[in-house]
Amino acid sequence: MTFEEFVEARLQALLRYAVMLAGDPHTAQDLVQETMIRAQLKWRQIAAADMPERYVKRMLTNVYFDLHRGSWLRRVVLRGVDLEATMEPRAVGDHADGLAERDQVWVWLGRLPRQQRAALVLRYYEGLTDGEIAEVLGRPVGTVRSWISRALATLRAQVGPALTKGAAP
């Protein structure tokens, strides 16, 4: 498979994965672009790997992890996030309630450490097993399970008080 064939076949899936990691489609596009530049430079090595997509997905995850380690100049956010273009709409009684709920979920996910968020996205969005997640993140399976467990515990702790607040008259 050539690099061009790989990009044509997998670019949209990589972009969706990046949106779930970054929470922002513009940042996701930057992550994918940076990853594709790196992948093109190493394409012979990647093409020789057993699973090129997983190799590139690991590269993308590492670029995401490195995003916050760089200069503060690269992290300026100019406006809010509109993920409607990448997320499927669902039926809700009031459109504003649905937007508020979605925004709150993004806030909760944004508070998670990068590794925990990546593990959750790989598990629940990409549908990977613990072993596959460990391979993508380059960590032992036990570490992946720990990150997922901690992330879910953190989300439960955040969601509980929010639900209690919403139920009070």
Rank of each mutant, 00 (worst) to 15 (best):
E34I: 02
D30M: 11
P140V: 07
D130C: 02
V76N: 06
M87A: 08
L120D: 03
L120T: 06
K42H: 15
P140G: 13
G138H: 10
V105E: 09
Q116W: 14
R16T: 12
I46M: 10
A91P: 00
E135F: 15
G131H: 09
A119C: 09
G127V: 13
I46T: 09
W72V: 15
V105Y: 04
T35Q: 04
H26C: 09
V32C: 01
K165W: 14
S71R: 10
T143V: 15
A47T: 06
G98F: 13
G98P: 11
D103S: 12
A22W: 02
V141S: 06
L112Y: 04
E4P: 00
P25K: 14
H95D: 08
Q40K: 05
Q104H: 05
A28E: 05
V32F: 02
V76E: 08
Q40N: 11
R156S: 08
V136T: 13
L99V: 13
A85T: 09
D30C: 11
V81K: 09
E88S: 02
G166H: 04
L73F: 10
V81C: 02
Y64E: 01
Y64Q: 00
I37Y: 00
Y64R: 02
M20Q: 15
D50I: 12
T2R: 08
A153W: 02
T61K: 09
L31M: 01
V121W: 08
D50S: 14
M59R: 08
G23C: 13
E34A: 05
L73K: 14
P161Q: 09
D97W: 15
S146C: 03
R145Y: 02
T35M: 08
V19K: 11
A85G: 02
R69C: 04
Q104F: 09
K57P: 03
E4H: 12
A167F: 03
M87I: 09
L15W: 00
L41T: 12
L109A: 05
V144T: 11
L152T: 03
T2P: 03
R69T: 07
R58E: 14
S146G: 05
G80C: 07
W43V: 13
T129S: 15
R74V: 07
G142D: 05
F65P: 06
S149A: 09
E34G: 00
M20W: 14
V63D: 11
A48T: 11
V107S: 03
V107C: 03
R58T: 09
P161T: 11
K57V: 10
G93L: 01
E8K: 08
E53K: 11
D94W: 01
Y55S: 04
G98K: 14
R38T: 00
L112S: 07
P52K: 07
V56N: 05
D82E: 13
E5P: 03
L73A: 15
L78I: 11
A49R: 14
G110V: 12
R38A: 08
R10A: 05
M36H: 00
E8Y: 03
R102P: 00
H68A: 08
W72E: 12
A162R: 06
R156G: 02
R156H: 06
D97G: 10
S71G: 07
R38E: 02
A91K: 01
R58W: 06
V105R: 05
R69V: 03
P161C: 04
D82Y: 12
R123E: 04
R58I: 08
R69I: 03
L128N: 00
